Simulated assay, not measured.
Amino acid sequence: MCEVINDFFDNTFNLHKGFFFTMWKLLISPGKVAHAYINGKRKSYSNPTRYMVIALAFQTFIDYWFKTTEVIKQDDYYSFSFLSEAMNTSMEIWNVKLAVEYILLTNLFNIIFFPFLLYLLFKPLKYNYTELLSTSFYFFPTILFIVMPMLFITKVLLNVYVTKEVIIVLFTAYLFWSYLSFFKTMKITQRLFRFFVVVVVFMFIRIVILPLVLSYLYLQTP
């Protein structure tokens, strides 16, 4: 029985061959980890797909037992004067649903769509989509390892609700840190501008366009 369990964790999560080392390196030098994987130097680091699976499982476990994402329900989302009250309400409900009820699908959307924007904006560096996808398999899960323990500590232990603005700041701060270090061959001013455009477009699509489309398709009411 113990051998079966060991084989399961070995083949699925690869915990004892670099997972914690990979997570630590992704916190202090994320660009180096991503470049190592792309360049074929992979023995020291966990496979990005396995790393992502562990992160999503970790998030699911924390939220299932401690309902940490319920803090998101405490926030008000943005409204738009050119839309009806019913549409604004529906968009707010969809934003909460995407952040709480459909969080796994939302994370997968983020991980898959974000590198597509990077591919468009950073074409001069000649990275293909698959290479950029592997970076998001490393960087986005690391954000979960940062945010989920924080939500656990503040909600479960301190009974304090963290606003979505704090989560967004942590999210964007780590993305800037990781991708600016990854795209280090480009001038810093160009990196900052291009990545800023990527983040703005991504946030606009995630927070405005996606809930708006879902609201038109499936109007939600309280």
Rank of each mutant, 00 (worst) to 15 (best):
M91Q: 11
P48F: 07
Y77W: 10
S81K: 11
V96N: 14
D63F: 08
W65I: 03
D75I: 09
K67V: 04
T60D: 05
T69N: 15
F80P: 05
I112G: 05
F113D: 07
Y102V: 03
F114K: 08
P48S: 07
I111L: 12
Q74L: 13
L108V: 13
T89K: 09
V96I: 13
N88F: 00
I93V: 13
L98F: 06
M87S: 07
N95G: 11
F61Y: 11
I111K: 05
T60W: 06
V53D: 06
N107E: 04
F80W: 05
K97G: 03
F82E: 11
E92C: 05
L98W: 01
I111Y: 03
R50G: 10
L104I: 15
Y77A: 08
T106S: 14
T106R: 07
N107T: 03
L56P: 01
L98T: 04
S84P: 02
T60M: 08
L105E: 15
I111Q: 09
E85W: 00
V100W: 06
D76A: 11
F80Y: 10
E85H: 02
M87Y: 12
L56G: 00
V71R: 02
L104Q: 08
F114L: 15
A55P: 01
N110I: 14
E85N: 09
E92Q: 12
E85P: 01
V96A: 13
Q74Y: 03
E70W: 08
P48R: 06
A86Y: 04
F109V: 03
M52H: 06
P48L: 05
T49R: 10
N88K: 07
T106M: 09
I93H: 08
L98K: 07
L108D: 09
Y77E: 12
T68S: 03
I103H: 10
I111D: 07
I62F: 15
F61D: 10
F109H: 01
P115T: 13
F82H: 05
Y78K: 13
V100L: 04
P115R: 10
M52D: 02
F113M: 12
L83Y: 02
F113R: 06
L104N: 06
N110F: 04
I54V: 13
L98P: 00
S79W: 00
N95Q: 15
F113G: 04
Y78V: 13
F80N: 11
M91C: 10
Y64F: 11
L83S: 00
I72Y: 00
P115D: 11
Y102A: 09
F58D: 06
Y64S: 14
V96S: 13
T69C: 06
I54E: 04
I111W: 03
M87G: 03
Y77Q: 09
S79A: 06
N88W: 01
V100D: 02
